[in-house]
Computed example of a mutant assay.
Amino acid sequence: MNTDTQNTKSQVKLFEVTDNHSDQRLDNFLITYLKGVPKSHIYRIVRKGEVRVNKGRVDVKYRLVIGDIVRIPPMRIAEANDVVFVKQSLRDALQQGILFEDDGFIVLNKPAGFAVHGGTGIDSGIIEGLRVIRPDAHFLELVHRLDRDTSGCLIIAKKRSALRKLHEFFRTDQVQKTYLALLAGQWARKKLVVTAPLLKNINKGGERMVVISQAGKEAETLFRRLRLFADATLVEASPKTGRTHQIRVHAASLGHPIVGDERYGLNDTNKHFKNKGYNRMFLHAETLKFEHPSTGELMTFSAPLPQQLQSLLQHEQQV
């Protein structure tokens, strides 16, 4: 039941969560519900406590539960014909990047350089772009996330039941994930499991950092060397857990950060590779393997390495 009054734009609205929005993140719900309201404003009113759930303050990552009462402060909601701006380059990439689709979910080859959703300073991301190019779709929600500069396999649910099942798979580590990463320097090992726990932290500049700390959450990544170059190492990274920036931080802990990683890498190293043509972080979500949420069939999805990265590797001197 929706208890808000659509015509009273100047009044507080109370929205009761039904099955249609259960398990949805608060920020994604608000972005969809408050069409035309800038993403930065939505994140601001949540941070300030103007949006409340069951009369209490919550984080934007809070997942809605059936029966929750969401308080939405007074604001002018844009008219229905307002359009979210989506770059043509993103539209084209989305149209060409579908790896698999059925009535339950989409597997997309996400292009690098685009956030998975809009937020502070970002008008639109992958999910907003999909909703624009598919205006008749009744339900499109992110199942998981990839960093802005990471390319590769990304799952979008097309119905609530698929979203719930796939969320459960990710929470219980039933999704096998394999990434390709180019590490700076020659990594001497052929194989290694890193189990350093990770803690989210905020540095002085307000930028979110993840650090290795015994106070953090358990994290496990298997690194396997694929090819050794004169000043870099191509590896396969298989994270058993799904912590924020997990592969990036674990790679840096080896003394071999990912090429192009502006947050956890080294400035001189990144500059060296940038001069060679590496203009993005070399991290690619190559494969996903999980059971189909409806049929139970084991499925494997693969996203080819972007041509730009393939070309750069061909010019590396192999050892």
Rank of each mutant, 00 (worst) to 15 (best):
T3Y: 14
A162L: 09
L312G: 06
L254D: 09
I156F: 15
V175Q: 00
S294P: 08
I127A: 02
S161G: 01
G296T: 00
D27G: 04
V46P: 14
A78Q: 09
I31M: 13
I72C: 09
H144W: 08
D92A: 09
L313N: 02
E168M: 12
I31K: 09
N81T: 15
K87M: 12
P257Y: 01
T269D: 10
N275V: 00
V86Q: 02
E128G: 03
T241F: 13
G121M: 07
M299N: 04
I212P: 04
K48G: 10
L312V: 05
T287Q: 06
V17R: 00
W187K: 06
L64Q: 00
N2T: 03
S10M: 11
D136P: 02
G242Y: 11
S40N: 11
G36K: 07
I127M: 03
D268Q: 10
I156E: 08
P304D: 00
A285N: 05
V132F: 08
N275Y: 08
Q88R: 12
K110G: 03
A188F: 09
D149N: 14
F29G: 01
K165P: 14
G265K: 03
Q88C: 07
E220D: 06
G49S: 07
T195F: 01
G125S: 02
F223Y: 00
H41G: 04
G206K: 05
D103R: 05
N275I: 00
P111V: 01
A285T: 06
E220S: 07
R44D: 14
F105D: 00
K200L: 11
P239Y: 00
Q318C: 15
G56K: 13
F114H: 13
P293S: 01
V53T: 02
L108D: 05
A181S: 07
L226R: 03
Q308W: 11
G56C: 10
E286Y: 11
Q214S: 15
H117D: 06
Y264F: 11
T178A: 12
L26C: 11
M299V: 04
D23S: 09
L34I: 01
R44W: 07
L192W: 04
R44A: 08
R71W: 03
L64W: 06
E141M: 04
E218W: 07
G296N: 08
S213T: 05
R164H: 14
Q214V: 11
Q176V: 09
S213H: 04
F301R: 00
R52T: 09
D68R: 00
L182T: 04
A237M: 11
R248W: 08
L228Q: 10
T5F: 14
P38D: 01
G119P: 10
V84M: 08
D147E: 04
A162F: 14
T32P: 11
P111W: 08
V17D: 03
P74E: 01
G205E: 14
G129A: 04
K165D: 06
Q246N: 06
K204F: 07
H21T: 11
A115E: 13
F29A: 01
E316F: 13
V259N: 05
K158Y: 15
S161C: 09
S238W: 02
M75E: 06
E291I: 06
A112Y: 06
D123K: 10
M75C: 12
R243W: 12
I133V: 06
Q96G: 02
K159I: 07
R189D: 15
R63A: 07
A137P: 10
V53S: 04
L222M: 14
F301S: 01
N267W: 06
Q6F: 15
I212N: 03
Q6I: 14
D173I: 07
T269Q: 09
N2Y: 10
